[in-house]
């Protein structure tokens, strides 16, 4: 499978433009920039366009069919329909591109928020031994002097951090969520251990 050297939107608008100019589909392929070299070479060798089109890796798989449909009758009516469809795809691609750009801005915002909340929750989790000491102090009047990071509280903080990241990742339609969540776990544990070392150094027991 060979990929186009340009975006699908550029390719289709070029093809539509050539077809509008009265060229046939083969000529339109030759005149359009971005068609892979090997596809053009196969066209030159005299292979059928319909066979060649199936080996182009389109984002919309149904596009292959659109081009191959023309094989069965090369009436002007069909060419016109092909052109209209290309135009429709062009408008769609433009709208989807607009959507992507809007989402990109939000994605960047969400990314910043994700990292800030990740670090803050991990920091709170790191300081959680102090909270439990304070709780003991309020209840019994003395500190327990335990700085263990292995408590239910710190596990629940890890869960909260994971969930928070999962929701924000889903919200911004990110891919490979599982790998990103593993990175979150690693970062969380590193920050918690780092804070513990800091606490051991600061609090004299």
């Amino acid at each position: 499978m060979s990929k186009l050297n340009c975006t699908e939107f550029d390719f289709l608008s070029n093809i539509a433009f050539r077809l509008e100019g009265g060229e046939n589909l083969e000529r339109a392929f030759f005149l359009t920039e971005g068609v892979p070299e090997d596809i053009l070479a196969r066209l030159q060798l005299g292979e059928e366009l319909t066979d060649i089109v199936s080996s182009i890796d389109f984002k919309y798989p149904a596009l292959t069919n659109l081009f191959t449909s023309i094989d069965n009758a090369d009436e002007t009516d069909i060419l016109e329909r092909l052109m209209i469809t290309s135009k429709l795809i062009r408008i769609r691609e433009e709208t989807l591109k607009e959507k992507e750009t809007t989402l990109k801005v939000h994605r960047r915002r969400i990314k910043i928020i994700r990292f800030v909340t990740l670090v803050v929750i991990a920091l709170i989790a790191g300081f959680s031994p102090i909270f439990s000491n304070l709780y003991e102090f309020i209840n019994t009047g003395e500190f327990t002097t335990s700085l263990s990071i292995l408590s239910y509280l710190s596990v629940s903080f890890l869960l909260i951090n994971l969930l928070n990241n999962y929701y924000l990742l889903k919200m911004s339609n990110e891919k490979s969520i599982k790998i990103r969540l593993i990175i979150v776990i690693v970062l969380h544990v590193v920050i918690v251990i780092g804070v513990r070392f800091f606490l051991v150094g600061v609090i004299p027991f």
Binding site: I113, T117, V120, I121, I124, S128, P129, F131, S132, L134, Y135, E136, N139, S151, Y152, L153, S154, V155, S156, F157, L159, I160, N161, L163, N164, Y167, L168
Partner: peptide, 28 residues
């Protein structure tokens, strides 16, 4: 997502002992 986990986890960690299983109710 910012308010709930941050504020409530802080408050809860003061209210509950760290070795109580009730803590898990909140993330769940």
């Amino acid at each position: 997502s910012c308010l709930l986990p941050l504020v409530l986890s802080m408050v809860l960690s003061f209210l509950l002992p760290s070795d109580s299983l009730t803590i898990f109710v909140f993330p769940l």
